[in-house]
C-alpha cells in the first residue's frame, strides 16, 4: 500500500529522516510517535505525496512517487483522507459544503440521499452544526469536520497528524473512537501522536502497531525495522 525503500528526507538544515524502509500494510492501524520535531509530520506528508524523498524509493498504491506528475498525485490523494492538527477549510463555505467538497473534486455526484450525509454528520457529532462556517467551529468540531471530509470519498488510507493536539481528553477519546471504527471497516489508519495514554487506550480496542521516529530513524515498538 505504502512502501518506503531506503527513503530519506532532508530539509535545507540537514537530514530529518534517514533511509527508512517499511511497508504500510492494508487494514492496519499505526501509531506514529516520537518527540516534537522528530519528523512525524514529514513522514505523514510523504505518505500522501506532499513531500518527495530526496533519496531512496517511495511507492504509494504500487506507483513510484517520484515518477508521478502533480495531477497523478492529486488523483492518488482521492484515495487518502488527511486530517491535520491545524486543519484547513474553505472558510466562506459552510461545514456541509466543505465536507462534500471531495465528492465534487472527484467528479462524483452529490450524495443523492441526504440520509448518508446526515448519518455522517451524526457519526462525527456535527448534525446541528452543518450550516456553520468553519471559523465558527471549536477545535474539536473542526477536527471532526476534517474527519468527515477525509472519509466522505471512502478512501483506503486515513492519515491523521496530531488530530487530538488541540482538543480535550474527552474529545480525543471521541476522535480516536471514530478512527478505530474506520479501521474496523477495513481502512488503514496512520495516526501521529505523542500522547501515550491515547496509544494505550487504542491498543485496548484495536491491534495497533506503534512506529517510533527518533534520531532520523523509524522503528517498530522497540524493535528495529
Amino acid at each position: 500500500m505504502i512502501e518506503f525503500d531506503a527513503a530519506s528526507y532532508s530539509y535545507t538544515g540537514g537530514e530529518l529522516l534517514s533511509k527508512m524502509s517499511l511497508t504500510i500494510t492494508p487494514g492496519a492501524f499505526y501509531f506514529i510517535t516520537g518527540p516534537s520535531g522528530s519528523g512525524k509530520t514529514t513522514f505523514l506528508k510523504m505518505c500522501y505525496g506532499a513531500l518527495l524523498p530526496n533519496s531512496g524509493k517511495l511507492q504509494i498504491f504500487g506507483r513510484d512517487l517520484r515518477k508521478m506528475t502533480r495531477d497523478d498525485i492529486a488523483l492518488m490523494r482521492r484515495n487518502i483522507g488527511v486530517i491535520h492538527q491545524e486543519c484547513q477549510f474553505i472558510d466562506h463555505l459552510n461545514v456541509t459544503t466543505n465536507i462534500l467538497l471531495p465528492l465534487s473534486v472527484s467528479g462524483q455526484e452529490k450524495l443523492n440521499d441526504n440520509l448518508n450525509l446526515k448519518e455522517l454528520l451524526t457519526w462525527v457529532g456535527l448534525k446541528g452544526r452543518s450550516g456553520a462556517l468553519p471559523p465558527e467551529l471549536s477545535g474539536g468540531e473542526r477536527q471532526r469536520a476534517a474527519l468527515a471530509r477525509a472519509v466522505i470519498n471512502s478512501p483506503e488510507i486515513i492519515l491523521a497528524d496530531e488530530p487530538t493536539g488541540n482538543v480535550d481528553w474527552e474529545m480525543s477519546q471521541r476522535l480516536l473512537q471514530l478512527l478505530i471504527e474506520l479501521n474496523k471497516m477495513g481502512k488503514t489508519v496512520l495516526l501521529a501522536s505523542h500522547d501515550l495514554s491515547l496509544i494505550r487506550l487504542a491498543k485496548s480496542h484495536v491491534q495497533a502497531r506503534v512506529l517510533r521516529i527518533a534520531n532520523k530513524r523509524i522503528t517498530l515498538a522497540g524493535a528495529d525495522l
Binding site: 500522501y48 492529486a74 474553505i90
Partner: peptide
Amino acid sequence: VLRLIGAT
C-alpha cells in the same frame, strides 16, 4: 485545501 482533497 483543494490539493489536499485531490483536486487536479
